[in-house]
Simulated scan of single mutants.
Amino acid sequence: MENVYDFRCMLNNGEEITLSDYEGKVLLIVNTASQCGFTPQYKGLEELYEKYKEQGLVILGFPCNQFGQQEPGDDAQIEQFCSVNFGVTFPLFRKVDVNGPDASPLYEYLKDQARGVMRTRAIKWNFTKFLIGKDGQVLKRFSPRTTPKSIDGAVQEALSA
């Protein structure tokens, strides 16, 4: 695969889309969970999305239940939780694995393009973030501890590139 636009993913409503639908946009791809210590980041992600969506930012949320079973709900429950508790309006996708033999091909690609701490490939926890440039190339990987507010500058830079 040459960039993220080559991947097909399933929205939480069951619609399959090609990420090329977002071509020319800056993407922030995040593996999420509803019962995690980092779950309040949904609020910051939505704020970032609201602030920059008119300039071309799209946040893509990929629920994942691989870390402490912190995303046990089904697609409808996850969407309702995110909407009611955090006002999430950015696209949410079907639950995925980000590590292991059943890992999403998109996440396999992301991990190859941007390594974590000490050059590790594996996603360590929920709310790992990947910033994607307008050309579909991975610009940077952010740890779960990195708040959405703290990556505002990187988002601005990607949008102005």
Rank of each mutant, 00 (worst) to 15 (best):
M1A: 15
M1H: 14
E2M: 13
N3E: 09
V4M: 12
V4G: 05
V4N: 08
Y5M: 09
Y5N: 09
D6W: 06
M10D: 11
N12Y: 13
G14Q: 11
E15S: 10
E15C: 08
L19Y: 05
L19M: 13
S20M: 07
S20V: 09
E23A: 15
E23I: 09
E23F: 07
G24Y: 09
G24K: 08
L27K: 01
L27T: 03
L28Y: 09
I29Q: 04
I29F: 02
V30H: 00
N31Y: 10
N31T: 07
N31G: 07
A33T: 06
A33Q: 00
A33F: 05
Q35E: 15
C36T: 06
C36A: 12
F38L: 09
T39G: 04
P40E: 05
Q41F: 11
Y42S: 02
Y42W: 03
G44M: 07
G44L: 00
Y49F: 14
Y49D: 02
E50T: 11
Y52D: 02
K53F: 07
Q55D: 14
Q55V: 00
G56K: 00
G56Q: 03
F62D: 00
F62V: 03
C64L: 02
F67M: 01
G68L: 00
Q69D: 14
Q69H: 13
Q70H: 01
Q70D: 01
E71W: 02
P72M: 04
P72S: 05
D74P: 07
D75T: 10
A76M: 11
I78S: 03
E79R: 14
E79P: 01
Q80Y: 09
F81V: 10
V84K: 15
V84W: 14
V84E: 13
F86W: 12
T89M: 10
F90P: 01
F90R: 04
F90V: 04
P91W: 07
R94K: 15
K95D: 08
D97T: 06
V98Y: 01
N99P: 07
N99H: 08
N99K: 10
N99S: 12
G100C: 11
G100K: 11
P101R: 14
D102N: 15
A103R: 13
A103F: 05
S104V: 10
S104N: 13
P105C: 11
L106Q: 11
Y107S: 08
E108K: 15
Y109M: 06
D112S: 12
A114N: 09
G116C: 09
V117M: 12
R119F: 14
R121M: 13
A122Q: 15
I123A: 08
K124M: 10
W125Y: 11
W125T: 07
N126E: 08
F127C: 06
F127Q: 05
L131R: 01
G133M: 03
K134H: 06
D135P: 05
D135Q: 06
G136S: 08
G136E: 00
V138G: 03
L139N: 06
K140Y: 06
R141F: 01
S143W: 10
S143Q: 14
T146Q: 10
S150L: 04
G153Y: 09
A154L: 08
A154E: 15
V155L: 01
V155H: 02
E157P: 03
E157A: 14
E157I: 02
A158Y: 05
L159W: 08
S160Q: 15
A161K: 15
